[in-house]
Amino acid sequence: MKHLLSIEDLDRDGIVGLLDGSEYMSDVLAREIPKVPALRGKTIVSLFYEDSTRTRLSFETAAKRLGADTMTFTAGSSSVTKGESLLDTVRTIESMGIDAMVVRHASAGAPHRIANWIDASVLNAGDGRHGHPTQALLDAFTLRRHRGDISGARIGIVGDVRNSRVARSGIQCWSRLGADLTLIGPPTLMPERLEGWPVQVTFSLDDVLSELDVIYVLRVQQERIGRALLPSLREYYARWGLDAVRAQRLKPDALVMHPGPMIRGSEIATEVVDGPRSLIREQVANGVAVRMAVLWDLIGSGGVV
């Protein structure tokens, strides 16, 4: 694999291969010295056009655990208004000699554009509302560790699916692994068109709550109010929030996930976040192992570490 731009570029075996690799990296991270020289001499640059402390730190930790050199380039969207094109920026960075570029951008497809322009491997760390493939992989990895098999799991994705790159990549990843997916939320936050999507849709969380094996809660943003997508966050929470009462109606072994950053009390209750069903902290921890596996696949020898 040269680039990781979208989960769509992977088939089931490709995903499973990366999850198996992540398992190995997870073992590495559990060692007394959690570091291997697998990418020694390689240079990885993080090109972040959008603020994202957690994803950037996760990637940089992954790169360092593999012995790679890392650089960070954080560009506000101001570089655009200053007139430098994306092409010029990435060519400048490439000329410093790099093996992989980890790209976060507010616009869909920016990593795809960059992959056409440079020789280095490109890793999509989130592009607009389009995709966030490593988030999908770490979510699948986390869930697989708890369930063994994702096939047949009924997963409900609750919230702002329309504007969520996490949801788009997650749907592609989980459907390839055989999960049964239901999107839940207000119609204004559902994708405008769903032809060909491997999902069911319901506007009522309460109707499906007790049937879910996994409830994956998305962040809801205050700015949706001003754009006439929601009347209020209070109303949203009352209908679609995972509060403590709803959490009690979940199946006994149902699991709760959230990609972060979360707003406690706007979409999910504090008790649920910190409760026994929650995988939220594990998701973050697993991100490093998964990103190590992806980096190793893209710019390592491809063999066993």
Partner: peptide, 15 residues
């Protein structure tokens, strides 16, 4: 254009 492709690509649409 707002349609199947904009929904898939996550690019906001113009209906």
């Amino acid at each position: 254009h707002e349609g199947e492709w904009s929904a898939r690509l996550g690019i906001p649409g113009r209906p």
